[in-house]
């Protein structure tokens, strides 16, 4: 990799060494703050339910819509369920949806982008037309259409919770791979005629070896940034679906679903809206900030 370092700087791509990038991220104050907040959210959602062992689903009408107190730090909802416990357990699903949908989007994007960039010609033309087509699809209406038509059968086949999870994650991931595909293709195109790649070709490297050892490592930077932002987008998309009442069922308290349920009680109990909303906002804000900082850190030309 010694040879490709100056080349990377020349193409504006990131170096693969993640240690210096990590250190530079820490040195950036906003980036470090975003990382800390995000880590705190993940940790709370992960171990929170162990430290705060209140049931998120226990219904009790005599403590409905209580404002925040020491017994219920985030108050209770219309069914008397503890809002903090619900935010913690719902957060697991929101974050899981975000990460899984991102993984699907990145996999698809890498596949399409590297095929198009590596082979060129009619493969490139066809795949890029497909990418353009996906970019001009009306995202949310289409997601709603798919969930409307496929929701019931998938739920019956895979169970209510897993079914919705699989459906939501694949639809969101399946509609968000386009920017990654474009990034990877552009990276491959600018790399493939460079000397180190041509040398590898002359030495008899197979297409797979070329991609694995020479091309893919050089697009890691931009793809990392896109992956970070994709998690935020997926969390927003899932929250939007749940907020419209078309995502997870009421007994799965994702943050969007909590807002959907809270709409009718806003006047009497504003806290049922504010806490789940803040949870979404803080998570997405820290992910976006992290993505933005990573872009600056991983791109030496950006400074």
């Amino acid at each position: 990799m010694t040879e490709s370092a100056p080349l990377n700087a020349a193409v504006g791509l990131a170096s693969t060494g993640s240690a210096p990038a990590m250190r530079r991220l820490w040195r950036d104050r906003t980036g470090a703050l975003a990382l800390v907040v995000l880590a705190a959210i993940v940790l709370m959602v992960w171990v929170g339910p162990l430290i705060y062992p209140v049931s998120p689903s226990e219904i009790s009408f005599d403590r409905a819509l209580l404002p925040p107190s020491s017994a219920h730090p985030f108050g209770t909802n219309d069914l008397g369920q503890d809002q903090l416990a619900r935010i913690l357990s719902g957060g697991r699903i929101s974050l899981a949806v975000g990460v899984t949908a991102m993984a699907i989007a990145i996999t698809l994007g890498l596949l399409v982008g590297s095929l198009a960039g590596f082979y060129g010609g009619w493969i490139d033309g066809g795949l890029m037309r497909l990418t353009d087509l996906f970019l001009s699809l009306p995202q949310l209406p289409l997601v709603l259409l798919v969930i409307y038509l496929f929701g019931e059968p998938v739920r019956r086949a895979l169970g209510p919770e897993q079914g919705v999870f699989v459906l939501v994650v694949s639809v969101i991931g399946g509609l968000n791979w386009m920017s990654v595909a474009r990034l990877v293709r552009a990276g491959f195109l600018s790399l493939k005629y460079r000397n180190f790649v041509q040398a590898a070709v002359a030495l008899g490297a197979s297409p797979w070896e070329l991609m694995r050892d020479h091309l893919l490592p050089n697009v890691v930077g931009p793809v990392t940034v896109a992956a970070t932002l994709a998690v935020g987008n997926a969390i927003l998309a899932e929250s939007t679906l749940s907020f419209l009442g078309l995502g997870f069922s009421p007994d799965v308290p994702t943050w969007g679903r909590m807002l959907f349920d809270a709409q009718n009680y806003m006047e009497a109990a504003p806290h049922v809206v504010i806490f789940p909303g803040l949870a979404i906002f803080l998570t997405v804000l820290s992910i976006n900030t992290l993505g933005d900082t990573l872009r600056d850190v991983l791109d030496p030309q950006g400074k």
């Binding site: 927003l236 939007t240 969007g256 807002l259 709409q263 909303g277 979404i280 906002f281």
Partner: peptide, 8 residues
Amino acid sequence: PTFFTGLL
């Protein structure tokens, strides 16, 4: 998110 802004 727009739905949260709306509710706020």
